[in-house]
Computed example of a mutant assay.
Amino acid sequence: MENIMPFVKSLDGLVDFSQKSLLISACAIAFNPLFWNIVARREYRTKFLTRLFGGHAQAACYALAFTIFSLGLLRDFLYERALRHQPSHPLLEGDLATMAGYALLACGNILVISSTWQLGITGTFLGDYFGILMDSMVTGFPFNITNAPMYYGSTMSFLGTALLYGKPAGILVTAEVLVVYLIAIQFENPFTAGIYAKRERERAAAGGKKKVEGKKEL
């Protein structure tokens, strides 16, 4: 805590930490990935959502997708509201900052939309945890640029919005977004890889069983 206080004091005048809207926005940003990881892992282990939807895994996945998407809209609304209550800075109000903001928003949305297009709804919104697995790994754009285009695209959009509003607080919140997503990646990627590795083991075991049965028939 003692190491953090000098940093906070250095932001005095740039960021108004007394505004509750900033804290609410920061909490929403941290909550969303925590929520979908907890829910998705519980679904994977217990199938509680699938059972809730009468055994229809795809319907359950779509319901979670709608929830995650709605929480994302709420998070974005809270972020923009928080920025309105924060002080601006002259260096972020020039034409260069505005152009950079629009460029970041454009690039960020391209990454998010193209990754959703490549993966589909179930691929984007944790269908793997529902047993809805893709046939093969997606390697085309934007996954040939980064393995987490949705997360990095979203981070770019947060930064672009901060520049358009001219708010240093937005840059600070964007840093939180990046940290939260980097942590999420560390938990999600190995878990998802384990799901697909399990499928490959099951396929290999099934293939071996068929070979044995074929030999017995001969």
Rank of each mutant, 00 (worst) to 15 (best):
D128A: 11
T116I: 15
T122R: 12
Y102I: 14
S114M: 12
C107K: 00
L105I: 10
V112P: 03
H89Q: 00
G94Q: 10
F66Y: 07
L74V: 15
A100H: 03
L92T: 13
N109D: 08
A103C: 09
P87G: 12
T67K: 02
A97Y: 11
G72S: 04
D95G: 11
T67S: 09
Q86V: 06
S114R: 10
L78M: 13
D95H: 14
I113S: 01
L73Y: 01
D128G: 03
G101M: 07
F66Q: 03
R81M: 08
G72K: 02
G101H: 08
W117F: 14
I110E: 02
M99D: 02
M99A: 10
A97P: 11
G120R: 06
T116A: 15
A100D: 04
H85D: 12
I68M: 12
E80R: 15
F69V: 04
S88T: 13
I68C: 11
D95I: 14
L111G: 05
Y129K: 03
R84T: 14
T124R: 02
H89C: 01
L91P: 07
L92Q: 09
F77K: 01
S114F: 10
L126I: 07
I110Q: 02
F125Q: 05
G72T: 05
I121V: 14
M99Q: 04
G94T: 13
T67L: 13
I113D: 01
H85W: 02
L96H: 12
S115A: 11
N109I: 08
Y129A: 08
M99I: 08
L71D: 05
D95P: 07
G108Y: 00
L105F: 04
D76H: 06
F66I: 10
L73E: 01
A103N: 04
C107S: 05
V112E: 00
C107M: 06
I113L: 09
D128W: 02
E80T: 15
Y79K: 05
L92R: 09
L111Y: 08
F125D: 05
G72D: 03
R84N: 06
E93D: 06
G101Y: 06
A82D: 03
H85T: 13
L96R: 14
A97S: 14
Q86Y: 06
A100L: 13
L71G: 14
V112R: 04
G123L: 04
A82C: 05
F66N: 04
D128V: 07
L96E: 13
E93A: 10
M99E: 01
L92H: 10
T67D: 02
I121N: 04
F125K: 07
P90W: 08
V112K: 02
I110G: 03
F66D: 06
R81W: 11
Y129I: 09
G108M: 00
Y79W: 12
L92E: 08
Y79E: 04
F77N: 00
G72F: 05
F66R: 07
L73R: 00
